[in-house]
């Protein structure tokens, strides 16, 4: 579904991705871990097409299409979803109106008929239930005055509504208490299927106790320096990142 080949990118003058290689297939969940400043969130931003990130080298293939050649909205319409680390507030725009606009834009792009109000509300009710999203928040202004946890849960609700192929969750666990974390995780687990894929970007192993990944990658200094299965996350939890950094530096010296 997603093939990243030798991806280099910079933001302003700082190079932040230095040759990422990653393949994500349908049905898989990948976790990307790493210390602060290693480039995890940058990778998400580059894939989603944030403007101030400049791709220097490399390719990204998304279901046979050149992802980097698409506008951010077309990437979204093709089925790439990013759950934001800091979801933005938009005063006066109701959550539900925003979602209806988004969903119908995506449907139009896919040459599907737009949903009418009734169909849309039915779908919305169904998904609210699935991800345990508070009905009161649905009609409020988009993220305005939401608590940190409510914002994150709103991201998962949107994910459920838009049914993307590939979801990138950018530190969705940060700032969540244990109950919220459990609800978010159970939402994601319900949405997992053989046809979609997830990339979880996280600092902590904690999230991975709830959403069990198929693969774990460690990102350091703009490169994936180690990949493994869920056991790798446990190892990291125990030992920290320092042992990996040392090995990685040795490798580079050898090269």
């Amino acid at each position: 579904m997603l093939k990243i080949k030798n991806l280099h990118a910079r933001v302003e003058e700082k190079q932040i991705l230095k040759g990422i290689n990653l393949v994500v297939n349908a049905g898989e969940v990948h976790a990307i871990m790493g210390p602060n400043g290693s480039g995890k969130s940058s990778l998400a931003s580059v894939l989603a097409g944030r403007e101030n990130y400049e791709v220097l080298e490399g390719e990204v293939d998304f279901d046979g299409k050149d992802l980097l050649d698409m506008s951010p909205e077309d990437r979204a319409r093709e089925g790439l979803f990013m759950a934001f680390q800091y979801p933005i507030e938009i005063p006066g725009v109701s959550n539900i109106n925003f979602l209806r606009t988004a969903l119908n834009e995506i449907r139009t792009y896919k040459k599907l008929p737009a949903l009418d109000a009734k169909q849309f509300l039915r779908l919305s009710k169904e998904k609210q239930k699935l991800v345990e999203f508070d009905a009161k928040l649905v009609n409020r202004s988009l993220n305005e005055g939401f608590s940190g946890g409510e914002k994150k849960r709103n991201e998962i609700f949107q994910l459920a509504m838009l049914e993307p192929k590939l979801s990138i969750l950018d530190e969705t666990d940060s700032g969540l208490d244990i109950d919220a974390l459990r609800i978010v995780a159970s939402g994601v687990n319900k949405l997992r299927s053989k046809d979609n894929a997830f990339i979880l970007i996280t600092h902590y192993q904690r999230l991975l106790e709830y959403i069990v990944p198929d693969f774990v990658h460690v990102l350091y200094n703009g490169r994936i320096i180690k990949s493994g299965t869920k056991e790798l996350a446990l190892e990291l939890e125990e030992k920290g990142y320092d042992w990996l950094k040392e090995t990685f530096q040795e490798q580079t010296v050898q090269l």
Partner: peptide, 19 residues
């Protein structure tokens, strides 16, 4: 944020302004 949900910039601005 709105682009990432499939909404183009023109529509995004309209949405924000209307809000």
């Amino acid at each position: 944020y709105l682009n990432q949900r499939g909404i183009n910039t023109e529509k995004a601005v309209a949405l924000i302004v209307n809000g």
